[in-house]
Design a protein around this nucleic acid. Structure first.
Lengths: 342, 342
DNA sequence: CTGAAAGCGCTTACAG
DNA sequence: CTGAAAGCGCTTACAG
């Protein structure tokens, strides 16, 4: 592999001039620039990333820590990873994907060894053990998911509280007065998945304000258990006319449950879910839903991280906690209360 | 961040001795080793990855090129990526994930700049444009997926031909004499997805040998189109008693199609699919299937790549093309022909 | 506009 | 068993 020394020799200039001709960081005569570019092209020169990182303290790589938790919907993770990776590349960065179970050790390794210029954490828990290690790192960090303590980090997440309110509000306006909300399993909350209770508590509060009865329950994260739970809920609350789903498995299982009961949507039951459009397509779901927008979140988190990496004053700017406004994608699954309510 | 110079100073030895004490590449007195380790621990020293890469020409990173093609099942990709990433970490390597649309350019960038010690290509097509660039790279490359020309590369894939034979054979032994095979869309084959025709052609040949009628058709990759196609196929071939699915969307859509027709499995229809166990769980599918084993393939491809990276003679060893034997996971969806055949 | 030189933080022959 | 020094391939002040 040719080095910049080879390029310089071929162009008949010094290594520093070759370097400047390529970086444009100081003016170079037209003639020299041409000769250098020609040499680069002819020799097939690509700068050595390790050497450049050593000289500049910049790797042009961001670390992406993904956690795969039991009972979470794995395919959804792919969307976040793609959003991060594609955005990073668009900004000139590559992505080091870390899926190691021991996130703290992984974080120490990639930040301590300066393999990355910044780190994105996915699937952040309320009391995430990775955060202390991230705060100690010399590189900036940004999160997707809301921890209890956001200090020293940029935080991005869907506004799950607003999502809960929007769901209830949509149903209330249509005239619904009794709803069922199916959330994730209890242990998702126990391990710090704040999105579960953030949506639920806000939905309960909004229901209280509107005088709507809301039955909030946890549901399993897989078939056939969640299907059985949905049947039981519909049995237990025969006068409920709307179903809110903050549980992807429940959304995926609902069509067969409704089919088995001979219920139609929205004629007999109104439904609003919370998942990504990609998810809806994969499972052919035609329920209106709050878009969880993994691509937009991935985009936001990387854009802010890179800004902090690149602007010298950015390192000291106050950190942000930003919530993405939930967007209700209307797929026609809500209507005024049907016969179940009469 | 402390350097090895800081460690050496704190331990009262030279930098070279500190380095050797850590690498163990030459013997060091017990006393010195203790002092160096103590200094490392106290200062929180981690070697700088860029500097080490520059000195050793080893990055301990492997590149992973994933392609996301239209009409392919994205969640399946996550399984391959995890298999590669987890195996790499177990062998001491990190994973640079590249999802860039222009795979050739991406490949040139990460290999030319020596960011990686080797490269894994996922979702390789018959006439994959990335292969010439990979062969020119100074690092070894390994593939998941079978290209037309395997020269200079290690190639791993499920044995789709054997999979096709196993499917037909299972049905034939149970007494089935007329089967339907639903493959991926035609354009999957047109863009070089050899797994499509490899399974189909082998199944057709095996059916011919056994005197079984086999209707081989392409199906769409999403709802509702594939559902309609399945209905039409069952209408068109009323005496077919077995269904073979080399199409993940078709497998996901089948339960509702069968429900709508009032058909039970395996009483009325025997079914064998081809997908991963993870996929079966995600979609709650209880059809027997050829396990596509993304985790095992990811493991194999990385293990071989690392062997080639690390053993000096390994660089010259003949390249391998290895097919993973298909395993039929029995979920009880096959039985002797049902009433449809009578 | 250009070049010689120092330096980034490691590893590893070379000497003792 | 240990150290001084060269070298990996870049970038960038310093001089002219």
């Amino acid at each position: 592999m040719p080095t910049i020394g080879d390029v310089a020799a071929a162009a008949g200039v010094s290594r520093s001039t070759a370097s400047y001709a390529l970086s444009g960081k100081r003016s170079v005569s037209e003639e020299v620039r041409r000769r250098v570019n020609e040499a680069v092209h002819r020799l097939g020169y690509t700068p050595n990333a390790g050497a450049r990182a050593l000289a500049t303290s910049q790797t042009m790589v961001i670390g992406l820590l993904a956690r795969f938790l039991e009972d979470e919907f794995a395919p959804a993770m792919m969307q976040y990873i793609l959003g991060v990776s594609d955005t990073a590349r668009g900004l000139g960065y590559d992505t080091l994907l870390v899926t190691e179970a021991d996130g703290v050790r992984a974080l120490r390794r990639i930040t301590g060894s300066r393999m990355v210029d910044g780190v994105v954490l996915l699937n952040v828990a309320h009391d995430d053990v990775r955060l202390p290690a991230l705060r100690e790192a010399p590189q900036p960090g940004a999160l997707v998911g809301l921890p209890g303590d956001c200090s020293g980090l940029d935080v991005f997440d869907l506004d799950f509280e607003e999502a809960g309110r929007v769901m209830v509000e949509r149903m209330h306006r249509l005239g619904h007065r009794e709803l069922i909300l199916v959330s994730q399993p209890e242990h998702v909350a126990e391990r710090g998945g704040a999105y579960m209770w953030r949506l639920r508590d806000a939905a309960l509060e909004q229901a209280r304000l509107r005088g709507v009865r809301l039955h909030a329950v946890s549901g399993e994260s897989g078939q056939p258990a969640i299907g059985a739970t949905l049947h039981r809920l519909l049995d237990d609350h025969p006068s409920a006319t709307g179903l809110l789903l903050n549980n992807e498995a429940a959304a995926a299982a609902l069509p067969s449950v409704l089919h088995a009961r001979g219920l139609s949507v929205p004629g007999d039951l109104s439904v609003v879910g919370r998942y990504s459009d990609e998810f809806a397509r994969t499972f052919s779901l035609s329920y209106s839903s709050i878009e969880s927008a993994p691509d937009r979140l991935g985009n936001m988190v990387v854009r802010h991280l890179v800004r902090r990496i690149e602007s010298p004053e950015g390192r000291e700017k106050p950190h942000v906690v930003r919530f993405l406004s939930p967007e209700l994608v209307d797929r026609g699954s809500t209507a005024p209360p049907g016969p179940r309510g009469r």
